[in-house]
Computed example of a mutant assay.
Amino acid sequence: MTETMEIPRIPRGFLLTTLEHDVSTSTDWHEHSHEADELLWSEGGIVTLEAGGRVWAIPPALGVWIPARTPHRAATVGAAQVRATYLTHDPIASSAMPAIVTGVALSDALRALLLHNHRAQLDSAARLRLQHVILDLLAPAPQTSFGLSMPTSGHLRAIAEAVLTHPADKRTTADWAQLHGMHQRTLARQFEAETGITFTQWRIQARLQLAIRELANGAAVVSISRRLGYRNPSTFIEHFRTLTGQTPTEYVRGDAGSAAA
C-alpha cells in the first residue's frame, strides 16, 4: 500500500509536533522532504528509511533524525505504528543534533515525554517546558552503524538489492564480478569506494539489518541466523554484538545500560 505523507504543521509558539501513522499492512511513502527537522520512530513494528544514501531499519528502541529539506522515503514491513515528530528548524533549539541523517537512541524517558506531549492535555506554558526537556534529551546514538550505505552505480546497486532480497546468497565478490563481466578487484574497489566498506562487510551489515526486522517481529535467534545464511548462531550473535554493541534481544528491547540505548 502507498500513502502520501501528511504536511506537518507545528503550532505557532511551540517547538515540535508528532503525527501518528498506524498501518495494518506493509506501507510505502514516496520520496519527499519537509521544511522541519524530523525524528522518525516507532511504537511497534519495523520502519525502514532510505535517506542520505543509506538504508535504515528502525526498531522500537531507536529513531532516525532527518534534517530539514532532506529527501527521504519510508516504508513498513507489515503492520506498524509509525511516529513522525517534527521540530522547528532552529539551530539553538536542536544544537545537539548534526546536519546529517543519524540514529537517535529512543530512551524510555524520551519516548514517554514524546507520547505525553502528543496525548496529554497541557496548558501552553507546561507544554513548552516539556518540549524544551525533549530537545535536551535528543542526542545521536553512540552507535549509528545500523544505517547501511547503498552503492550508487547501477550494477553495484543491483548486487546490493539482490543481497537484501536474498541475504543467504553465498555468492562471493568473484562470482558477482563474473556475472557482471568485471574483474574481481575492479568490483571490490568500486564497491568499497561507493559504500566505505568492503563487500563482505556490507553483506554482514545487510544481514543484520534484516535480522533487526525479524527480531522485532518475534522470530527466534536460531531461525533468523539460518535464514540469513549463518551455519552457527554464535557467529551471527558475534557479528550482531560487534555492529551494535548488544546482543540481538538487547538491541530490540533497548535494555537499560546497553551500548546503543
Score class of each variant (00 low, 15 high):
Gly63Arg: 10
Leu115Ile: 14
Leu122Met: 13
Arg119Cys: 10
His180Trp: 09
Arg127Phe: 09
Trp65Arg: 00
Val82His: 05
Ala96Val: 05
Ala51Gly: 04
Pro60Thr: 04
His166Phe: 06
Gly154Asp: 08
Asp108Arg: 08
Ala96Phe: 03
Arg73Tyr: 13
Arg171Ser: 05
Ala80His: 12
Phe146Glu: 03
Ala51Leu: 03
Gly181Tyr: 15
Asp90Gln: 05
Gln190Arg: 13
Ala57Ser: 06
Leu114Ser: 00
Gly103Leu: 13
Met150Arg: 13
Ala126Val: 10
Ala168Met: 05
Phe191Trp: 08
Gly181Cys: 07
Pro142Cys: 09
Arg127Ala: 11
Ala79Asp: 13
Leu114Pro: 00
Ile159Val: 05
Leu115Arg: 15
Glu161Leu: 15
Ala105His: 09
Thr173His: 14
Gly147Met: 02
Arg171Lys: 06
Ala79Arg: 15
Val104Glu: 04
Ala105Gly: 15
Asp136His: 02
Ile92Met: 08
His155Thr: 07
Leu138Trp: 04
Ala68Asn: 10
Ala105Arg: 07
Pro142Met: 06
Ala80Leu: 01
Ile134Phe: 10
Ala68Lys: 14
Leu137Tyr: 12
Gln131Cys: 02
Gly181Ala: 14
Val163His: 15
Ala99Pro: 07
Gln190Glu: 12
Gln184Glu: 12
Pro60Val: 02
Ile66Arg: 03
Leu130Cys: 09
Trp176Ala: 03
Ala80Asp: 03
His166Gln: 11
Gln121Ile: 08
Arg157Gln: 07
Ala84Asn: 07
Gly181Ser: 02
Leu113Val: 13
